[in-house]
Design a protein around this nucleic acid. Structure first.
Lengths: 154, 154
DNA sequence: CAAGCTATGTCAGAATACTGACATGAGTCA
DNA sequence: TGACTCATGTCAGTATTCTGACATAGCTTG
């Protein structure tokens, strides 16, 4: 049922951009599936994982790391703080940035989620050799770099 | 702001899943940037591009192709129909599925958007050889396949 | 010092996408 | 035929994320 080529369109069957979106969508769906039983969303997990690996990140830094706006991250952080997963000082030690840290409860919650997500990533990479994986890493890095540079010709 | 030198255990920096999300996020942002002047969102564009290449797709089929729920696509289609970009028959020729088609207006609108998106994709792929691109294609396909297969043995 | 610029945290409203639910049409199977 | 299952279109409500706006802290520059 797919004939009728339109001139000069983006061929979805061969478009790397479309494939990138499909892969990202599949990864997100798979993560949601394993995180749902743990009562955690993907963004929740991303925030906690970031804090585990880089303690003391501010709201804005977490937002950039999770690829959401700082307003969105702020709402999430308030919920996580209310539920006792993270803590923030009442006053900023310097500037306005409030360094955030995991509580023991948050760390426990993250451990199960982190294991689940790692298993998803392992499944995603099953069938790829080490060489292919490092190739994928380099290629994705190149794509990101090319997209971020606005006027820059690579 | 917390200083750089985030030296310890930055597993996110080596995670292909994280990199995949970053690349997808960068692509989406770049697409939004070029589509905004045309008054079109990414989902909007995806729907029109799908219809250009596969005329007669139903609401549910479009939803799957654009990686959103059929409810979300339904809302979008109603808006596109109201604005005269697509048409759907009042009654289903068979079953309940309503085959959707672009109007001349929708086709015109798509042409500019498609060119803009094509330039973004070209920028993304700048700096990658043909071999690298076909490698990326194969690797992404493998990731998607591995994530979708639930109990699938290799 | 004063002015300008940038980054941050936060509140509020708007846009977007999702989950739940219901009715309908088509195919399957006993 | 009738019951069952599945896919679809659609309405309604909820949830999530975004854009806009404001005040404040720190740095830079004249």
């Amino acid at each position: 049922m797919s004939q009728e080529g339109v001139g000069a369109g983006v061929d979805l069957e061969t478009s790397l951009g479309y494939l990138l979106k499909e892969a990202s969508s599949a990864l997100r769906a798979a993560m949601e599936e394993v995180l749902r039983p743990l009562g955690m969303s993907v963004t929740h997990y991303a925030c906690l994982e970031l804090l585990a690996q880089r303690p003391g990140l501010s709201n804005s830094e977490l937002a950039r790391g999770a690829f959401v706006t700082r307003q969105t991250m702020n709402v999430l952080l308030q919920a996580l703080e209310r539920d006792g997963y993270v803590t923030r000082p009442a006053e900023a030690p310097v500037g306005k940035a409030l360094p955030t840290r995991l509580t023991p409860s948050g760390r426990r919650s993250l451990e199960k989620a982190s294991a689940a997500v790692r298993s998803v990533e392992a499944r995603m990479l099953a069938g790829l050799t080490e060489t292919e994986q490092s190739g994928a890493f380099r290629i994705l890095k190149s794509m990101i770099n090319s997209l971020h540079g606005d006027k820059e010709g690579a």
